[in-house]
Amino acid sequence: MRFFLELALSGLAVGAVYGLVAMGFAVIYKATGLVNFAQGELTMIIAYIAWTIQTNLTGNVAVVTVGALGAALLLGLAIERVVMRPMLGEPVFATVMVTIALAVILRSSINFIWDAYPHGLDLGVGRSVVRAGAVGIRTGQIAVVATLLAMLAGFTLFFRYSRFGIAMRAVAADDRTALLMGVSTGRVHAAAWAASAVISGIAGIFFAVSYDLSPTMFQLGLKSFPATILGGLDAVIGSGLGGVIIGVAENLAGGYLGSGTKEVAGFVLIIVILMVRPFGLFGQRDIERV
């Protein structure tokens, strides 16, 4: 039982990080119909910005978090305005290639701006281990699970009750009709990119606190993309839950079935689920597959 709990709790924690990054994918897809292949790189850049604030200004957790997420907001808006908006109306393939190019640029910028060494994001919190019997978990891991739950609840309310959330759903459903109804699609796109960068930034900060910061961190995007496919590309809440499912499944597989299965467990799950529900667990039937 202890072994199972250790695997499940760790899986839940890493799954929560995947879930947050996956929500970032879904927010952009829902508003723009575009898969952003630079999501993992965005996550990494924001974590590095947090580390820069921590090492050069202050290690105060509130200042670092607000500073890094503020930077995420600006970065998301800048990418949308400078890189993505000129691509409006261009073929999807070209737009997706632009996000791939963006990913390469952001990835390479780590070495130009920072360095290749791993670093620890020390905010004075999140690293201590809480023990319940023989099972231990870091406080940062508990916090990321709690944050994911809060984000899921927040987004549910946002999409259901807020004016802007309904506008986003309208753009996602039919952007031309939404435009005719007075919804500013430009503003919706900008807000989606900003929100997506902030959500990814939260994931990046939690990951850097619990694990470490290194130039390979962008691979979180690769691990989280299956989560958003599993939950549904257009389902923000579903993508968050998809991350948790993938995290727990790969940890249980790695623990009980052994080496090699950890990497494929999530993908096996996706194949099985997509065979039954091709639009994902929580996705809408009429979405365009990428």
Binding site: L7, S10, V14, F207, Y211, E250, L252, G255, G258, S259
Partner: peptide, 20 residues
């Protein structure tokens, strides 16, 4: 005796197996 995929960042299941 276990292997991991290059670039892996989370080793919780491997180390739980080590403990076990």
């Amino acid at each position: 005796s276990a292997t991991y995929k290059r670039g892996q960042q989370d080793f919780s299941s491997e180390m739980a197996r080590l403990k076990e």
